[in-house]
């Protein structure tokens, strides 16, 4: 799990990884290599480097991201959540960019996603059209780009909360091993918080 100055969701994401049987450990932002026994990488949400310049722009240029790219090139799985998705786009590991929400405001609400592509590992065997209840929380969450350059894994169901192209909420690369999404599955892994639909994304890291 990558941790940059300003990363916020590393502990929640680590709890989610543990809950599906994984053994998470953190890197420091000045590290240049991933630990040798790294199986998969999570880039958690937050405001890395205070969103200075553009969300994810500074973190995407850190040495550790070169190591993450090598990990992905070798077929390793990478999951970027919210700011992590922004970092993946900024580092060109996923296509497109995340623009400010159409409302120009931060939004935080529970919402529904639907599976748009059941062929990646990230949706845990759910069928196309199946529903996941996950919190949406972001200020710059409107994905913009050519959907044909990626696999559209998750779409917003109902109202589009941020004005993204084709109601896109999460995409993977064409190979399917790098996934980014704006909603927060780590906050949908505990029945007390209202939903456990987020677990599938973390379970996919362990396969």
């Amino acid at each position: 799990m990558l941790r940059f100055p300003g990363t916020l969701d590393h502990e929640s994401a680590a709890t989610a990884v543990r809950a599906v049987g994984g053994d998470p450990f953190f890197t420091h932002h000045t590290d240049t290599e991933l630990p040798g026994d790294t199986h998969a990488v999570v880039i958690p949400g937050g405001f890395s480097y205070g969103d200075h310049l553009r969300p994810g722009a500074l973190a995407s240029r850190t040495p550790i991201m070169s190591a993450v790219k090598r990990h992905a090139d070798e077929g390793g799985r990478v999951l970027g959540i919210c700011n992590g998705f922004q970092i993946l786009c900024e580092s060109a590991m996923l296509p497109g960019v995340l623009r400010p929400n159409a409302s120009l405001s931060f939004i935080c609400r529970q919402g529904d996603l639907e599976v748009a592509d059941a062929g990646t590992p990230w949706t845990g065997g759910r069928l196309v059209g199946e529903r996941l209840s996950v919190p949406f929380k972001h200020h710059d969450g409107a994905w913009f780009g050519d959907p044909g350059e990626s696999r559209v894994v998750l779409r917003y169901r109902g109202e589009n909360p941020n004005g993204s192209v084709d109601k896109i909420a999460g995409i993977s690369n064409l190979a399917g091993n790098v996934m980014g999404l704006m909603p927060h599955p780590e906050e949908a892994c505990d029945p007390l918080l209202g939903s456990v639909d987020g677990r599938a994304l973390f379970a996919a890291l362990l396969a």
Partner: peptide, 13 residues
């Protein structure tokens, strides 16, 4: 309250 992150830390019941 929709402009506030109500959930970060995954402890908000």
């Amino acid at each position: 309250f929709e402009q506030y992150d109500q959930l970060v830390g995954a402890g908000t019941i």
